[in-house]
Amino acid sequence: MDSILITGAASGIGLATARRFHTNGWRVGLLDVNEGALQAVHAELGERCWYRRLDVTDMGQCEAAVAAFAESAGGRLDVLFNSAGVLRMGHFEDLSAEQHRFTLDVNVAGTLQMCLAALPYLKQSRSPRVLNMSSASALYGVPHLASYSASKFAVRGLTEALDLEWRRHGIRVQDLMPPFVNTGMVNKQTFEAPVVRRMGVKLSADDVARAAFDTLQGDPRVHVPVGLPFRFTVLLEKVMPQRATRALMAWLSRD
């Protein structure tokens, strides 16, 4: 039985992905900082479901969680899905240094640490994969989401590097790049970035979960844009001069 370990699994994209893989017969491991929500998901899914509270910024917790799940799954891990993430919208100077740093700690350090912790167990799998949550915000820096955008550029770079470096272990590393998704992370913001208002929030968590499942069926791309409008944007970005991309972003983000 294939196994997938998902961070941020108690809500949003992580939860939708856990449900989709579980429905398709996978053994799923749920990791999240919200233990109460994890217990509710575990009760919902039942068999072939394992959970543990995890703060992805704590390397010791990452190592212990991955080891425990791998032990429960016969000593190996087939897929690591780094879905845990945080978002703070606002004018750059209106957010505290602590808020910016927390975004980088969760989105970048958390992803990096989970990759390190998972490597020994991924190497035991027949077809190991790592899937990271990047973002459309990694295509061009987004005003009012500066530290979030920076974190997703970092995830994009990490994904590219590891996909090449970990070939020697037989591990594929890919990322998903959706624009804004209809989850609490976006909907509960106290500041609405102009780019959100102009682009709209058109993707659901289920849309991204479907993309995750489809990607792991053998999609060869390192970066997987999610949603037809953003796939079109990615194509345009390849042929437009950078000043055109910058002008578009300036318009979308105008206060």
Rank of each mutant, 00 (worst) to 15 (best):
R129L: 12
R88W: 09
A68I: 06
L31M: 14
R52Y: 08
R88Q: 14
F153L: 12
L122S: 01
L54A: 03
L30G: 01
F92T: 12
F81I: 01
S83P: 07
G29L: 01
Y51I: 08
S125F: 03
A65T: 00
V79L: 06
H42Q: 13
V79G: 02
G60C: 13
V66H: 04
R156A: 11
D55Y: 05
G36F: 04
L164Q: 14
T57D: 08
G110T: 05
G141D: 00
L164S: 12
N82A: 03
L104Y: 11
H144L: 13
D105P: 07
L116K: 15
N107K: 01
E98G: 10
V56W: 00
R88K: 14
T111M: 05
A118V: 04
Y140P: 01
E165R: 11
A138N: 07
D163E: 11
A97I: 12
L45N: 00
L80E: 04
K152Y: 09
R129K: 14
F102L: 13
G46E: 01
T103C: 09
G90Q: 05
A146M: 09
Q61D: 12
L119R: 12
G141Q: 04
D32T: 07
E160K: 10
N107W: 08
Y148T: 02
A97C: 12
A138F: 10
L116H: 15
L80Q: 03
W50Y: 13
A118W: 02
L38D: 03
W166E: 03
H169A: 15
A84F: 07
C49T: 13
E71K: 13
D55V: 12
M59Y: 14
A150T: 08
T159M: 06
V33I: 15
Q61L: 07
A68H: 08
A118D: 01
D163M: 05
R53N: 07
Y140I: 14
R168I: 15
Q124R: 13
R88G: 06
E165N: 06
A64P: 02
L45I: 09
W166S: 00
R88V: 11
D55F: 04
A136L: 08
M114R: 02
S134H: 02
L80Y: 01
S127Q: 15
A37N: 09
Y51R: 11
E160N: 13
L139E: 14
A67P: 01
S83I: 08
A70D: 00
Q124Y: 11
A64W: 06
P128Y: 05
G29S: 01
L112C: 10
L164I: 14
G157T: 09
P128T: 10
C62H: 03
L119C: 06
W50P: 03
G29V: 07
A70I: 04
L77K: 04
D78H: 04
L112S: 07
K123W: 02
L158W: 00
F92L: 12
E93L: 13
T57G: 10
V66S: 02
A73K: 09
G85W: 02
G141N: 05
E93H: 15
F102A: 15
H169G: 10
M133K: 03
T103E: 05
L131C: 02
E47H: 13
Y121Q: 06
G36H: 08
W166Y: 11
Q39L: 13
F102E: 11
T57Q: 14
A118E: 00
A84S: 06
A118Q: 00
G75P: 05
V130Q: 00
G46W: 07
D163R: 03
E93F: 12
